[in-house]
Design a binder for these strands. Structure first.
Lengths: 344, 344
DNA sequence: CTGTTAGCGCATTCAA
DNA sequence: TTGAATGCGCTAACAG
C-alpha cells in the first residue's frame, strides 16, 4: 500500500482511494465525478464522493482515461517557430482556447526536427487527438499521405492543400487589397510589394490580392519575392525596390509584419524619410508597430479567431464531424499610424 | 477484430498486431523494440520483428506506456506569454532540447487561466513528468505548497524561491553590470535605469547588478520601476527619466528588450538624437535589434542554455536525482550596435 | 531465447 | 441506486 515506487513525493490519489474513503465502488465514483447520466447516486452518497475527491485532491489520470477512451484530450500545434508575431499570436490563441475546452496543447516547432516526422510521431504515438499544422514548408505530398492516413486528425492553418479537407484560412487576399486601396486613396500610383517565397500558400493569396487591387486602382506594381519573410528579407526586398532612383515606388506593401519592419529599416538606412518620401504598410499587426519611429501602419488579421476556429474544427472532427474548409469571417482592418501619408 | 470504433481511419497498430504478424508473443516484441537488455531474440526473430514493426508503422502508444511506467515522457512549460522575445527564445530552446531527449512539451500560458491552477492540473492529472515554470508572477506561497507536494517535479526558470530547491538562473546581475560598465567606459556619468516591477526576482537581480556597477563606476544612478516590462513600460519609464531637462541622464539602461525598444521610441518622440544626445542599451538580444533605427545595443543572455539546463535538471530529477540550483555558466556578452556612443 | 501472468487507472458493459 | 467484471496497450516479474 505505502510502497511509493519513487522518491518523488506522495502517490497521486486514484479512483480507488476516493472510493475507499467513501466506502463505495470505484465505478460509482467514476460516474459521479463525470456527471455520467447513469450516475444517479443518492444525494447523500453523491456529496460524500464529491467531498472526498475534493479533500484528497483527486484528478483523473489522463493516461489511464486516454487509454480507456482512445482519446487524449490533447491537441498538437506545429509551428515553424516563433520568429513572427503572427505565430506567437496564434500559439497564444490556440493554447487559450484549447484550455477553455479542457484540452492540453503540445507544441512542435521546426527546430525539433523534420516537421512531417513530428506530426506523424505525435499522431501515431497517440500523443494527441489532432494536429493543427501552421507550417507552410511541409511538402504537399507529405500532407497528402498524412491526410489519407488520418483525414480526421489534421487541420491546416492558413493553408490550403487539395488533398487535405480540413483547413481554416484568413482573408489574406482581402487584407492585401485593403492595404493597396488605402495607399491608392492616398494618391500613390507606384507601389512596391515585398513578398516571401511564392511556394507558400499565404504568399500566393496575398500576392493575388495585391495584384488585383493594384489593377483596379490602375497603379503600377513592382513586386519582389524573397526566400525568407523575416526582418532581413524585408530589408533586402525594400533595398532592391528602392535602388533604382528613376522608377522608385512612393509606397511599399510588406507581406508580413517583420518584413514591414525590415523595409522601414532599409528606407531609413537609405536616407529616405518615412512617410514623407515613402509610405510603408505591413500585413498583420503587433504591439511593436506603435513603438517604431515612425509608427508602422498595418492591416490587422483576425489571428485570434483563426486559432479558435482551428481548435473548434479539430474538436468537431474528433467528435465525428466531417472535415471542412473554414474561412474566418472576420474582416481584416486597417490600423493607420505614422508610416503612411498622402503622396506629395 | 475489425471493429473500428470511430470513423477516423484505420486503427493504430499495437504490439499485438506486430506479434501476430511475426508469430511471437507481445512481450518479446516489446523487449526487442525497446532494446531491452533481456531482449536477446535470435538474430532471425529480431529482424523479423523489426521488419514487421516497420512495415506496419508501429509506434508505441504513449498513454499505455505512460500508464504502465508512471511516466509520461512529457514536460510542461509555463510562460507568462509570448510578449517578450526572451520567452519565445526560451520556448524554442526547451522544445528543441526536450524533443532531442525524446520528450514532448505541453504549453501553458497565463492566458489559459490561473497559472498556479495550470501547474497543479498538469501535474496532478499526470499530464507531465515535471513542470518548468518561467513565470515570475506566481506567489511564493503557492510555489512553496507546490514544492512541498512535488519537490521533484517543479523547476523554476530564472527565479529563486527559498522553498523551491530546483532552479536554473542566469547571471542577470552580471549582465546589468556589463551594460553599465560599457556606458561608463564611454564616459557616461549620469545613467538612468528602467526596470520592471520589483516583485520579480529577475528585476531584483538586474537592479542589484546595476546599482553595484554604478557605485564602482562612481556614476549617478537614476532609476525608475514600472508595473510592466513591455514596450509601453519602457516608453513611459524613459519619458519620466528624460522629463527633467536639468538632470537628464546621458544614457539609459533598459532591463528588458521590449523596454529598450520603448525607451528608444520615447527618446525619439521627445526629439532626442540617439546616440548623440542619449545612449540606450537593453538587456537580452533579439534579431529585431539590428533593424531598429538606430540599431539597439544589447547585452545577450544565454537563454538557449537556460532552456537546455532546465530540461536536463527536470529529467535528472525524474530519474531520481536530487533537486539543485543551477547557475548557467555562460557569461552574458555585449553586442554593440548604434544606440550607444561616447558622451560628448 | 521466449512465453505467461499481472496490473498501471479508468470507464463501461452487465448484473443485482 | 450500486457493484462486479472486463479490457484499453504496454512492460516487468517470473517461468520455462
Amino acid at each position: 500500500m505505502t510502497t511509493d515506487r519513487k522518491p518523488t513525493g506522495p502517490r497521486r490519489p486514484t479512483l480507488a482511494d476516493v472510493a475507499a474513503a467513501v466506502g463505495v465502488h470505484t465505478s460509482l465514483v467514476s460516474r459521479v465525478l463525470r456527471d455520467d447520466p447513469r450516475g444517479f447516486a443518492s444525494a447523500e452518497t453523491r456529496s460524500r464522493i464529491l467531498e472526498a475527491a475534493e479533500s484528497l485532491g483527486y484528478r483523473a489520470n489522463v493516461a489511464a482515461r486516454g487509454l480507456r477512451n482512445a482519446r487524449t484530450t490533447t491537441l498538437g500545434l506545429l509551428l515553424p517557430g516563433f520568429t513572427s508575431p503572427m505565430y506567437t499570436a496564434l500559439a497564444k490563441s490556440v493554447e487559450e482556447h484549447a484550455a477553455a475546452r479542457g484540452y492540453g496543447l503540445v507544441l512542435g516547432t521546426h527546430a525539433a526536427g523534420d516537421p512531417h516526422e513530428t506530426i506523424t510521431n505525435m499522431l501515431m504515438q497517440g500523443r494527441v487527438d489532432a494536429m493543427l499544422v501552421a507550417s507552410g514548408r511541409i511538402e504537399d505530398k507529405a500532407l497528402r499521405r498524412l491526410a489519407e492516413w488520418a483525414p480526421h486528425r489534421v487541420v491546416l492553418l492558413n493553408r490550403q492543400v487539395r488533398a487535405v479537407k480540413a483547413s481554416v484560412v484568413l482573408r489574406d487576399a482581402d487584407a492585401a487589397a485593403l492595404a493597396v486601396q488605402r495607399l491608392a486613396d492616398l494618391g500613390h500610383r507606384r507601389i512596391g510589394g515585398v513578398f516571401g517565397p511564392p511556394s507558400l500558400d499565404t504568399m500566393v493569396r496575398r500576392r493575388h490580392g495585391f495584384r488585383e487591387a493594384m489593377r483596379s486602382a490602375g497603379a503600377d506594381a513592382l513586386t519582389v519575392s524573397l526566400e525568407g519573410r523575416d526582418y532581413a528579407a524585408g530589408f533586402s526586398g525594400a533595398q532592391r525596390l528602392l535602388a533604382a532612383e528613376a522608377n522608385r515606388p512612393t509606397a511599399i506593401f510588406a507581406a508580413t509584419f517583420p518584413m514591414g519592419v525590415g523595409a522601414l529599416a532599409a528606407a531609413q538606412a537609405m536616407g529616405l524619410a518615412v512617410p514623407e518620401q515613402l509610405s510603408i504598410i505591413a500585413l498583420h499587426d503587433d504591439d511593436l508597430a506603435g513603438f517604431l519611429t515612425p509608427a508602422l501602419t498595418t492591416v490587422a488579421l483576425p489571428v485570434k479567431e483563426l486559432g479558435i476556429q482551428a481548435v473548434e474544427l479539430a474538436l468537431d472532427m474528433a467528435a465525428g464531424g466531417e472535415p471542412r474548409r473554414v474561412v474566418v469571417p472576420q474582416s481584416p482592418h486597417l490600423i493607420e499610424r505614422a508610416s503612411t501619408a498622402a503622396v506629395r
